[in-house]
Design a protein around this nucleic acid. Structure first.
Lengths: 111, 111
DNA sequence: ACAATCTATCGTAAAAATACGATAAAGGAG
DNA sequence: CTCCTTTATCGTATTTTTACGATAGATTGT
């Protein structure tokens, strides 16, 4: 079926959503990673505490260390954050490049 | 703990992420809804087929009608799409207002 | 009223995400 | 080398998500 039923009440598309392949996969993975309240809080915390270590985040959140570590992994693999080993600890920051990429994709495909 | 360990390699925050309360909940819900490959495909399909009915989406996707209906519900509740009853069928379109809100939030908090 | 069409919902099974305690791994201090 | 600190990973229980078939609800056409 290539035809689409046209509905008088529906306006023409407000945005292109012109994306596919690896870019789309990458974008969906970033959406999925931030679609969790705890992980969104972590990202917010990193924005106001750039360069903090895992322990700072664990102290801030009401969940176990193992769980925080798991969430950090998800955010890392999705590209939202980067972790740099600093002695025995690990220093986390927002990944500016990937965040900029995300923002630009949203602006492009949702305009 | 209010102190944060500062790491020489980490740059200052690239974005404010200044959001909270209901706006944050709404945003996280929108992230979660699009963090699924099938639902992202539905949104893309609606961009190129504005005003199509559920059956068109079912024909396009390789999954059962009940599952599509479930995904449409998630997208509706998150605000990505709107459905209007048109005779026995239901005509779906992107929700331009909410999509614009999402885009503006991203531009604001990730800049 | 009846049959046909279209979609949502129900019930449920399978898969994935989330959370925790326990443990391992890696680095620094003594 | 040994102890201490810090974080990741393992194993596992619970919850949530995803998917399906079957069924119900709503509307059109006859």
């Amino acid at each position: 079926m290539t035809e689409t039923t046209s509905c008088a009440l529906c306006a023409p598309a407000c945005c292109s959503l012109d994306i596919s392949g690896d870019d789309q996969k990458r974008l969906v993975a970033m959406f999925k990673a931030l679609g969790n309240p705890i992980r969104f809080e972590i990202i917010k915390f990193l924005a106001t505490h750039p360069g903090c270590i895992t322990g700072d985040i664990v102290d801030y959140l009401p969940i176990a260390q193992a769980t925080v570590s798991q969430h950090l992994k998800v955010l890392r693999e999705a590209g939202w954050i980067s972790g740099i080993t600093e002695g025995p600890a690990r220093c986390y920051c927002l990944n500016a490049e990937n965040i900029a990429w995300f923002r630009e994709q949203i602006v492009q495909i949702m305009s």
